[in-house]
Design a protein around this nucleic acid. Sequence first.
DNA 1: TACTCGTGGCG
DNA 2: TCGCCAAGAGT
Length: 372
Amino acid sequence: MASHDQTRKAASGESSEAVSVASRLLDWYDAHHRDLPWRVPPKALAGGARPDPYRVWLSEVMLQQTTVEAVKAYFRAFLEKWPDVGALAAAPAEDVMKAWAGLGYYSRARNLKACADLVAQRGGRFPGTEAGLRELPGIGAYTAAAISAIAFDRPAAVVDGNVERVVSRLNSIATPLSEAKPEIRALVERMVPTRRPGDFAQAMMDLGATICTPRRPRCMLCPLRADCSAIVSGDPEHFPVRLPKDDKPLRRGAAFVAQRSDGAVLLRKRPEKGLLGGMTEVPTTAWSARVDGATTEAGAPFAADWRRAGRIAHVFTHFALELEVFHAHIKGDAPEGHFWSLAHEISGEALPTVMKKVIEAAIPGATKARRV
DNA sequence: TACTCGTGGCG
DNA sequence: TCGCCAAGAGT
């Protein structure tokens, strides 16, 4: 094994120490890897199986800033609806937004569709190189490296939040994370083995997700504890060092759930760009407008017998939101820019979670899936 | 570079 | 309860 390591060192510039770390990690991965819907197990890979780049891409985009548990159901649903990139390219963008509803970061869905269209136009095959992948919409440094390593067996340095944490601890990096990223990337590049780079990347991320966790890391179970500098300090949780964050401002507003006699709800589409871009909503005031209980008629999109239905709270990445919810029964056509969604259609609309909360406050059960 | 951009779970 | 933070990308 030692001579094997030396050969790899000569070929790729890895240090022999880094190679041994990678070897220990891969041994751990072989024994402890998780069975995930988008993953090809190491045994199958050793037997010559190759991951489907479409599935790797789809899973990696969904996993951007999103937990594995949240992604599983969406991944299965997408694969069921659109089994390959050609099918996704052929789908209406509206259907993709509806299927993405609830997963968050909706620009990912728009870019996903744009990327599928591009790849399908070019013959349906994803590029195998980081540079080629990096040019596609929604694919940044991390995702390009992950697809290249996992789907195409290229020795790319895959650096996500897990890897940053693991490497920060292995090396007790005291520099704040925002500044330390280049150093961390350089360290990862030295660790990447030329053999099984995809498994190595997934092993690093699995280690960060299950052992080297942000809080209360399970160091006693870690295959790299003998290589770890932070564990010597007695406080591995201290790493990575982060700068304090700014406080989240609170915004307020009012939302208006207008209902027709047959139960249909009045909706409209948000602008393509910005917060919740391209998603569906009920009419609301601007968020941060003051809401006085006595003068809500002024904030309503049209006159009606608006009745207070409750208040919902929702926390976004950089602000918190409180919406006073009003409910009214109205007659007539949908106002300009609005449309009626029938009772059985509401659960399938491209409604972000905050809007489902609003509608539920006015009409309990309205957004729950039901048989047609 | 530093913001913007969702949501849910965990300690 | 509530702040933290997740397999980041775009601008």
